[in-house]
């Protein structure tokens, strides 16, 4: 359908990198999300305030600005630290690390909101019953809360994932060889920007479509015990 002038494998490589960035960021985001949600729901005021500040700040700043801040700012910061400890050479910041950590950090805030809602959706009685059985907090979380909150978390989680996959396109701006940048390089060499960007767009559509199907399956699976109206 498209004549890619031999740049097909290069785009495919970029697609794999896009997936890699997405999945790693997802892992970070989920960890931060769980921690953030637990902090927001904890009785400790400082923890609540901390989590609240985190989510508010993240939602007020565009992804791109944060990413540029981490990438360029991190560069300066690391070199200042390196100089302070007596390291004379120039340290380069890894765009992969900068991209993954920024995206993970941003979506951790969105996951916090999703997980908080999901935890609140689990009936209080379940948690009280768990404690009445003498479970510790960790046991209660793993055995009672987690399995039941998954069902409520999936729709929000799926949304965040889809937005996140698309956000990974930004890493091309800080020089990471994801599929958008691979396409840009190929477009420059062949003078066929339209073809290559459309191919990339189709790749994103494939990823999102597969995700939607998988999420639907997951949601059905975790709702087996629920009678639908």
């Amino acid at each position: 359908m498209f004549d890619l002038h031999g740049y097909g494998p290069s785009i495919l490589e970029g697609t794999l990198l896009t997936l890699e960035v997405s999945l790693l960021s997802l892992a970070i985001a989920m960890m931060l999300g769980i921690l953030g949600a637990l902090a927001k729901l904890s009785p400790s005021k400082p923890l609540q305030l901390f989590a609240q500040t985190y989510t508010t700040i993240i939602r007020g700043i565009p992804d791109l600005v944060l990413m540029l801040l981490v990438f360029f700012g991190g560069q300066v910061f690391i070199n200042q630290v390196a100089l302070a400890v007596g390291y004379e050479d120039y340290v380069d910041i890894n765009p992969f690390m900068a991209g993954v950590s920024t995206i993970g950090f941003i979506f951790g805030a969105y996951m916090t909101e999703t997980f908080r809602g999901a935890i609140l959706a689990v009936p209080r009685g379940q948690i009280e019953a768990a404690y009445a059985y003498g479970m510790t907090r960790v046991q209660m979380f793993i055995r009672i809360l987690l399995p039941q909150m998954v069902r409520h978390a999936i729709p929000g989680f799926g949304n965040n994932w889809l937005v996140m996959v698309k956000t990974t396109a930004l890493v091309s701006i800080i020089g990471l060889d994801d599929m958008v940048r691979k396409a840009a390089l190929a477009a420059g060499a062949t003078r066929m920007p339209f073809t290559f960007y459309v191919v990339v767009a189709i790749n994103y559509l494939i990823i999102t479509s597969i995700s939607v199907t998988a999420l639907k399956w997951l949601e059905d699976r975790y709702s087996l015990g629920v009678i639908k109206a």
Partner: peptide, 8 residues
């Protein structure tokens, strides 16, 4: 992604 749409 919006970025890709803009590039197209």
């Amino acid at each position: 992604p919006l970025l890709v749409q803009m590039f197209i």
